[in-house]
Structures are given as structure tokens and as C-alpha cells.
């Protein structure tokens, strides 16, 4: 029972990380209509900036600020320099230009920091575990990640649905020309939305540091999973991103944790392990196929 609970929490933790990435990706697509493969690179930038500042200064606060700041600033530079030219282009150009950005980001990072993964320790105040139930302890850090992710979800909801800037963002997505005609600097809004998406990616990256290894290529690994989230949730929808992320996080984690055990009851040990490894790594993609069969536009299609 505690094992199941632990894996559910692990799944939630993966889910909120995916949400932070998917929210940015889906916002950028929903508002600007651009597909950004380099979103994973911003996640990597956040992770590296936080890891390096943490190693240099030992301060958790500074490292968080560095991770967020680096991702947001580099994100906005990328928007101003490259992405802005792609809004009017077709998706193929967007895919290729942002693929080129991935190459540039990855190779530059390798050049600067080498291929060796960086090790990041958990901040002092979040060290250790807490006893959630008698006989069941869980790392505080992972709980904090889940908490931050859910807080961001609430914050995003308020920002988009309850504030003036959120209103402009929503209007910019559906009635771009009208917003511009009313005297709003839509380009500024685009840059800000992109910066926000980058900030969230950076947040996911810096939180991933102590859990996963910080290395080149970490962004693409999670990016493809983020795509699955966005497709399941419905592209352009933040609500869909949250739900999709939690579903994908839970399904992926639970399959990996329990499928080998289940299969071992009906087949030989090594065969069961091999099959389980294959099926559990394909699980979320099969889930995506299933969702597509039933609802081709995802669970919560935006502008339906």
C-alpha cells in the first residue's frame, strides 16, 4: 500500500514537471501559433544556470534566481532574434529553425561545461524525509516540487483568466488584428508570453537538477514526453496541459514500477522484465494513440 502511495507521489512529481514545460509550450503555441522544439533547451538552461550558481555560491536562493533569470532572459533573446521571424512562416520552417537552435544550445553547452553530468545536491532546508503516514516516509524535496507545480498551476489560472494582461493574452490568441487595432503592442505581449514560458521551463529545469542528472540532451528527452502531454491535453489549452501532464506522469511512473511485477506472475523472470521494460517505455505513447482514436483534438481542445 505504501509502495503504491509512494509511486503515486513520484508520478505526481513527474506530472507537475511535465506540466511546467507543457504549459509554456502550449501557451506559446496557443498565442503565437508557433511550435518551439527549443523549449527543452530552455529547461536545460535553467538546470545548468541553477546547478552552476549553486556550486559556486552554495546559496539555494541565488541558484533559483539564476535558473529562472537565465531561462527567461535567454528565452526572450531567442524570441526577439529568431522566433519573431517565424510567426508568419509555416510549421516546417519553425521546426527546422528551432531544431537548429537545439543544436546550437546543446553544442554550446557541451563546449562550455563538457559532457559530464553535473551533480546538484538538494537545498539544505529541503533535505531529509517526512513521515506522511506511520511507516511511510517521503523526501521533502519531492513534496516541495509537487507543491510548487500545483501553486504555479493556480497562479497561471489566475493570471490568464483574472488579470488584464491575461485578458490581452487570450485576446491576442483569438483576435490578433483587433487587439493591435486597439493600440496594444502585441509584439511586446508575444515576447512576454514567450518569456513566461521560458521561465516555467527554467523552473522545471532547476527543480529537476537534484532529482535527475543535469546534462546535455536532458531537454529533448523530456520535450518529447511534453509533446505527448500537449497532444493528450489538447493543444493550446493550459487546463488540458495540467490534466495531460498528471495523467502521463502517473501512467509512466506506475507502469515502470508495477508492470515487471505483474508480468512476472504470468511469465519467466527475464522475459517478463524485458517485455515490461518495452511496454512501460511505450505506455504513454500507446495512451496517446488511444486518446487520439477517441478524441483526435485532445481531451480539452482550445477554441473548440
Amino acid at each position: 500500500m505504501t509502495l503504491v502511495l509512494e509511486q503515486v507521489l513520484n508520478g505526481l512529481q513527474l506530472g507537475v514537471m511535465l506540466f511546467l514545460l507543457a504549459a509554456g509550450l502550449t501557451l506559446v503555441f496557443g498565442v503565437m501559433g508557433v511550435i518551439n522544439l527549443a523549449h527543452g533547451s530552455l529547461y536545460m538552461v535553467g538546470a545548468y544556470a541553477a546547478a552552476i550558481v549553486a556550486a559556486k555560491t552554495g546559496s539555494a536562493v541565488l541558484s533559483v534566481l539564476a535558473g529562472l533569470g537565465a531561462a527567461a532572459v535567454i528565452g526572450m533573446i531567442v524570441e526577439l532574434g529568431v522566433l519573431r521571424r517565424l510567426y508568419a512562416r509555416d510549421h516546417l520552417d519553425q521546426v527546422l529553425a528551432t531544431f537548429a537552435l537545439i543544436l546550437i544550445f546543446n553544442e554550446t553547452t557541451t563546449l562550455l561545461f563538457g559532457r559530464k553530468p553535473l551533480f546538484v545536491s538538494v537545498p539544505k532546508m529541503l533535505e531529509g524525509s517526512v513521515e506522511l503516514m506511520p511507516g511511510f516516509t517521503y523526501p521533502i524535496y519531492r513534496l516541495a516540487v509537487i507543491g510548487v507545480g500545483l501553486l504555479v498551476a493556480v497562479g497561471l489560472y489566475v493570471l490568464i483568466n483574472r488579470t488584464r494582461i491575461g485578458m490581452l493574452v487570450r485576446a491576442g490568441a483569438t483576435h490578433r488584428q483587433m487587439v493591435r487595432a486597439l493600440g496594444v503592442d502585441i509584439r511586446m505581449i508575444f515576447t512576454l508570453v514567450f518569456g513566461l514560458g521560458a521561465l516555467l521551463a527554467g523552473l522545471a529545469g532547476l527543480m529537476a537538477g537534484p532529482i535527475l542528472s543535469v546534462q546535455v540532451g536532458m531537454g529533448e528527452q523530456i520535450l518529447i514526453l511534453t509533446f505527448v502531454v500537449v497532444v493528450i491535453g489538447g493543444i493550446g489549452s493550459v487546463r488540458g496541459a495540467l490534466l495531460g501532464a498528471l495523467i502521463v506522469g502517473l501512467v509512466d511512473t506506475l507502469l515502470r514500477a508495477f508492470l515487471p511485477g505483474l508480468l512476472r506472475q504470468v511469465m519467466q523472470g527475464p522475459d517478463a522484465d524485458a517485455l515490461a521494460a518495452g511496454v512501460s517505455s511505450m505506455g504513454v505513447y500507446l495512451l496517446m494513440a488511444l486518446v487520439l482514436l477517441v478524441r483526435p483534438r485532445g481531451l480539452f481542445p482550445a477554441h473548440a
Binding site: 503555441f29 511550435i35 510549421h91 521546426v95 518529447i224 509533446f227 505527448v228 500537449v230 497532444v231 493543444i235 505513447y285 496517446m288 487520439l292 483534438r297 485532445g298
Partner: peptide
């Protein structure tokens, strides 16, 4: 865009 993401996935 969905087509791009799905074929990739």
C-alpha cells in the same frame, strides 16, 4: 502542429 508532435512521439 499536432501531426508533427504525434509522428515524433
Amino acid at each position: 502542429v499536432q501531426f508533427i508532435m504525434i509522428t515524433l512521439a
